[in-house]
Design a protein around this nucleic acid. Structure first.
Lengths: 218, 218
DNA sequence: TAGATTGTTAATCGATTAACAATC
DNA sequence: TAGATTGTTAATCGATTAACAATC
């Protein structure tokens, strides 16, 4: 997974966690934090935290640490959270509902602007005040409105076709919840949430632990 | 993230993907596959695939490759999918609904046996034929029934308290959807699905790509 | 000034890739 | 047997950790 600029994906995937803890600190009116304290919260090492942040600039101050508010703002900028993201949700089933109501969109500039479904029963209903539109009007909609992100919440069948439509309409990013690896051109960003893989990993770890405990009891 | 036995988490997290592709191959009546072909499907290198599998045993045959059905069975065993997992869902909101109806449970031995919610309006309703019980009866339920996995689908507030209850009742694993890092003892396995982190990573990548394209156009 | 903590270089560790002998 | 492909060792690459000079 090569990155365009020099920053590795390992670093990038830690940024949201920094952002989350900085937000919480700010909520509790904490003004400054050292890499050592952040280490305790995040369980990344202090050294790693300083390395990570210095990929993007020197946000700290020797002898003091980091200003929580400033650092949060900076990481927010790095994550692209200063601009609004318009999101459409494809598939108005259970997962589509959950994503449409996703609390994490709040206060981060994400906004669900439309939902799509192929079921004639769903079309015309409202979720969180947003009307469910027919999947047949997907391309028409994107071409007439700005859309940044498409969240695919459909069953695995036909997922690639939907992705292809999104791509043809120049969507920028796809948040994919279907258990499929989508084939997308280089300039489209795709982020998978493969719940089955997460669940199976959990299952693996449970059984590993059980085995280890049996061994330990001998 | 140290593992008990020698297998690294990097390897473990690739296993479900192997399992998924082997299942698909089997559905299409493909009998054998080489590491080279699996590489094309998964986009892991053939060398990596052979290394990964050999952490658990020599499942292949020189000059032939791997038997799809056998390999699927073996990886299923490694993932612990040969035994049934009883799952309870805590939080009967949108995400709780989505998880209860999660298709990935099917054919993998996972079964949602109960749902819990604190809202008196939800309690007594049915989701997929499963009654929503009061959160107050959570411990009572677990002590009277076997439960393997607790899926936490509540808002972030109070998540740790729910985890503590699950732990006190000797649950084995927690599938956590709340944007919180739970504090759990060593013998409990926790798997987080942090959608906010996934979303923010997507946002980062979109903006990186945009920047790279601006640069390219100069 | 003395103490604290960053930014950054160097050392270590772990994961991935390459290569090839073994063997079906 | 010849060809294919694994299992496995060695080489490379990348990420994490340690150390410390710079400096607030």
């Amino acid at each position: 997974m090569a990155r365009d600029n020099g920053v590795s994906m390992a670093v990038v995937r830690r940024l949201p966690k920094y952002y989350r803890y900085l937000s919480e600190l700010l909520e509790h009116d904490v003004r400054r934090i050292s890499s050592k304290e952040l280490s305790r919260l995040t369980s990344f090492t202090a050294s790693q935290i300083r390395q990570d942040l210095n990929n993007f600039g020197g946000f700290g101050q020797q002898g003091y640490g980091y200003n929580v508010e400033d650092l949060k703002t900076e990481i927010g900028k790095i994550l692209g959270l200063q601009v609004e993201h318009k999101v459409i949700v494809i598939g108005a089933g259970n997962m589509g509902h959950a994503i449409t109501n996703f609390r994490g969109f709040e206060n981060s500039g994400f906004r669900v602007v439309a939902l799509f479904d192929k079921s004639t029963e769903m079309v015309g209903t409202f979720i969180r005040g947003i009307e469910v539109l027919s999947i047949d009007t997907l391309e028409e909609y994107i071409n007439e409105h700005r859309v940044d992100i498409g969240a695919i919440c459909t069953p695995r069948e036909g997922t690639q076709e939907i992705a292809d439509k999104l791509i043809s309409c120049n969507i920028k990013g796809i948040w994919n919840f279907a258990p499929v690896d989508l084939d997308v051109p280089e300039d489209i960003v795709i982020e998978n949430v493969h719940l089955n893989e997460s669940l199976f990993t959990l299952s693996y770890l449970i059984h590993e632990k059980k085995k280890a405990q049996r061994k330990g009891n001998k």
